[in-house]
Amino acid sequence: MRIVIVEDERMIAERLRRLVTEIVGDRLESLTLLDRFSLAREHLATHPIDLLFLDLDLYGRDGFGLLEEALASSFATIVVSAHHDQALRAFELGVTDFVPKPFGRDRLAKSLARLETREPALRKQLQNLAVRTRRGIDLVPVARVRYLQGADDYTALHLVGGQRRLHPKSLRALETLLPSPFTRVHRSFIVNLARVRSLESHGGGKHRIILDDGTDVPVSRARIAALRQDLRMDDS
């Protein structure tokens, strides 16, 4: 696992390094400590990583700019912050976890375990998906997403209005972040149930979801039962 810690408080950075090293053990491939905004941006642009620990308050600077950039990337982000009131905003942007300061080994271990087991985030409060565009970072409200289609290293977001955006996170990584109306219906598709018009059966156990703009999305056999239940629940 390749990890970067961005934290300007030296003792806290050291603490993170020590505890993460202990918890991750042999699976740790690399661990980099950075204390500056600019250094972090440079490093992340050139080094592929798996996990970022990010302090939101670097030398008095608001770290949300960097956070949005981070969330538009493929790696997972765990915010470590003294400002507990920022947790909700961070979760709305799609952080994997928010570790409030001061923290101990157990809290950090839990956060890392959740990441490893890909268990859904405890607080699925994602409101926006950060998407990198030529202009910078765009925050796309999740309510505007009809469905998500997984490719190899990225995910295509199909939006209301027919637009398409690419997100560097895998479909699986996004699944852990997206809130409840989003349901995995196929190995390569996640659908926003709020946008479903009907579920059609095509015989031979083949099913397709018809969305509100007429688009159809395949449903895998294994997931049909759960989907039916979700849709009923949704109707009720």
């Binding site: 408080e9 003792m11 806290i12 050291e14 300061k101 001061p102 923290f103």
Partner: peptide, 15 residues
């Protein structure tokens, strides 16, 4: 102030 107090407490925890 959280930034001051929480960071200090975290550093003290490490010490």
């Amino acid at each position: 102030q959280p930034h001051f107090l929480m960071n200090t407490l975290t550093a003290l925890a490490e010490w």
